[in-house]
Every structure is written in C-alpha cells, then in structure tokens.
C-alpha cells in the first residue's frame, strides 16, 4: 500500500474541509472497499480522513420516516427492530451481501460509495475508462460474464455491486448530503449514475460532499417482500442478478408494487414500467410473467453474459412469487 497521511476529525465541518481542499484526500469509514482498492493500486490517496468519530450513527423513526445515519453498520441495520418491522426488504438485502465480518465493518454510506468489482477496473495492467478515463474498456471485448445488460455505454459496461442499494432504490429512499456549499437531499434513484462517456464518476456527489444519512418514507411493504439474489455460490458472492420485490396486496389485488434489480447495470436498476403493469392485478404467476417481459425489453447482452437475460426474467418472476407467497 502506498503511504498516506491520516487524520481523524471530530466534527463534520472539519471532515468536509479536509477533503474539499485536497484533491487526493478520501474519506474512510469501514474501509472494506477502499483499502482493497488501495492495496491494488487502483486508488492512491495521499490523505485519509477517518470519519468514524462523526455523530452519524443514529437510527430513528421521525413522523413515519426512518432516519439511518451514514455510519450505521450494515450488520446493525440488518438486525435493527425498526428495519425488520417496517422495511424487511432492506434487512433481507443487507443479509444477502458480503459476510458477517464485512457487514460488521461496512457502513451505509460506504456501501453506497463502493466501486464496481469489474475485474478490468481492478487490474491496473488493463485498460479501463472508469479507472483511467480514455484508456478504453477491457470488458467490452473481454470476459464480460459479470457485466451489465441495462444502461451500459460504449465506454463502460460495469455493474454496481451493492445489494443494500437495490432495496433502498425500491423503497424510494432519500440520500442526505452535507458539503462545502451546505446540505442537500438526493432521491436515491438519482444518487448513482449511468456510465455514459464519463464512467469514472459513479454518483452525483460533489467534491467534499459527504453522505450523512439515508431516509426511508413509510410504506405498505411490510409483509409481501422478497430479496432474491442469484450468484455463483450459495453465499458470500456478488450477484449475477438480484431482484428486490415488494408488493402491497389486499383482497387478492396488488395495490402497490416495487421492483429493482442488482448486478445488471451501473446503478441499481428500478423497473417502474413493470411495477405499473402489476397495479390492480391479481398476484398470479401469469401477471408476474407479463411484468418480467416488460422489464427485460431493453436488455442488451455481451459475449459472455447473455445468460443473464433469461436468468433476470426468471428471477423477477420467482422474487414476485416469493413476495406474494404463492
């Protein structure tokens, strides 16, 4: 690992100032992704600003809105009574990600900030527009089994690796951000971005901006929810495809539906049209199949990941069946 200087600010302003004024400085919270990237020479910060002392560790329910501090640990959030009671989809998604050791280190903010696990991004001997803009994409003509089927560009076909973010997208969360120019709120679906011709930028945060919390509005998705993750082994692997499904069913009619996918795009992939087709319908496999057909219409495969299209289609149907308990 390259050398760097280290500071541990005790208040938010000092942390923001430290990163806003120094182009090579980075925040560190759990460190589970950043230190890995630093060991590989993918990211070489000259200064690390340890934010673990900042007071961003609260979980509270205010007027039906669940407020989750950015430094809440993934393991703590997954096991929290308020999350299990009001947003079980989030708990399921968190437990599908990483291992208990990593969840004990990884924070909510850090989970959102983690980088793609595209092997060309990690391998500094290969071209990668995300790592070195303009160097090309090794994955497009290379081994692209793990890569995107939605929203990719001719510059980047990497996918976002998070499970937690897939659930938060489905749950219409909001990201709270503080920065040199003050505070702002970002709808979760607008936080991560598609690669376009600037794949080096994963999200819409500005320099020196820091995630302070995530908020989830109240919803009716407390019972019929399911997070289904398909991967190369039963546990502790990144998704080939994952689906977050949430249904609000009464009198055998779907009143509300949320669907989002992981492992398929540069950001958590919300399936709004598929959601709409389910409203007012009965929770049947045939209706779920129609929704899955709609969800997959814009999918594009590369040489090694064509299997993801039927897999994603089937995963949507199965996740909805599990959510509806049919």
């Amino acid at each position: 690992m390259n050398q760097f200087s280290y500071m541990r600010p005790s208040n938010l302003k000092a942390a923001i100032d430290a990163v806003a004024k120094d182009t090579s400085a980075r925040f560190i919270a759990g460190g589970t992704n950043l230190l890995d990237l630093m060991k590989n020479g993918v990211v070489i910060p000259e200064k690390l600003v340890d934010i673990n002392r900042l007071p961003l560790k609260d979980i509270q329910l205010n007027k039906d809105i669940l407020h989750i501090g950015a430094l809440v640990l993934n393991s703590e959030l997954a096991a929290h009574e308020l999350v299990i009671t009001y947003h079980p989809l989030l708990s399921q998604a968190l437990l599908a990600g990483a291992s208990q050791q990593l969840r004990n280190m990884a924070t909510v903010g850090g989970n959102m900030m983690q980088r793609t696990r595209c092997s060309y991004f990690y391998d500094t001997t290969m071209p990668c527009n995300k790592r070195v803009p303009g160097s090309g994409c090794g994955a497009i003509g290379g081994i692209n089994r793990m890569h995107a089927i939605f929203g990719a560009s001719s510059d980047c076909i990497a996918v976002h690796p998070s499970d937690m973010c897939v659930a938060l997208t489905a749950l219409d969360a909001t990201v709270l951000v503080a920065g040199p120019k003050g505070n702002r709120r970002i709808p979760f679906g607008d936080f991560h971005r598609l690669p376009g011709n600037t794949p080096q930028t994963d999200n819409t945060l500005g320099k020196g901006e820091i995630i302070t919390a995530v908020e989830i509005p109240s919803n009716a998705f407390t019972k019929n929810v399911y997070y289904l993750k398909v991967r190369d082994r039963a546990s502790y692997a990144f998704a080939l495809v994952s689906v977050a499904a949430a249904l609000d069913i009464s009198n055998n009619i779907i009143r509300g539906a949320r669907l989002a996918m992981g492992g398929v795009a540069h950001k958590p992939w919300r399936l709004r049209e598929a959601e709409q087709t389910l409203i007012g319908k009965a929770p049947t496999t045939e209706n779920f199949r129609v929704a899955a057909n709609i969800a997959m219409t814009s999918a594009i495969a590369y040489k090694h990941n064509a299997f993801k299209i039927p897999m994603a289609h089937n995963t949507i149907i199965t996740a909805l069946q599990k959510a509806a308990a049919i």
Binding site: I28, G31, L35, D50, N104
Partner: peptide, 12 residues
C-alpha cells in the same frame, strides 16, 4: 464483533 483484520487500518 468479528471483523476482517486485513481490511482495517491499525490506526483506526
């Protein structure tokens, strides 16, 4: 709490 000691800095 169990953690991976390879992915945390001693100073933290």
């Amino acid at each position: 709490q169990r953690i991976n000691s390879c992915l945390t800095l001693a100073v933290m």
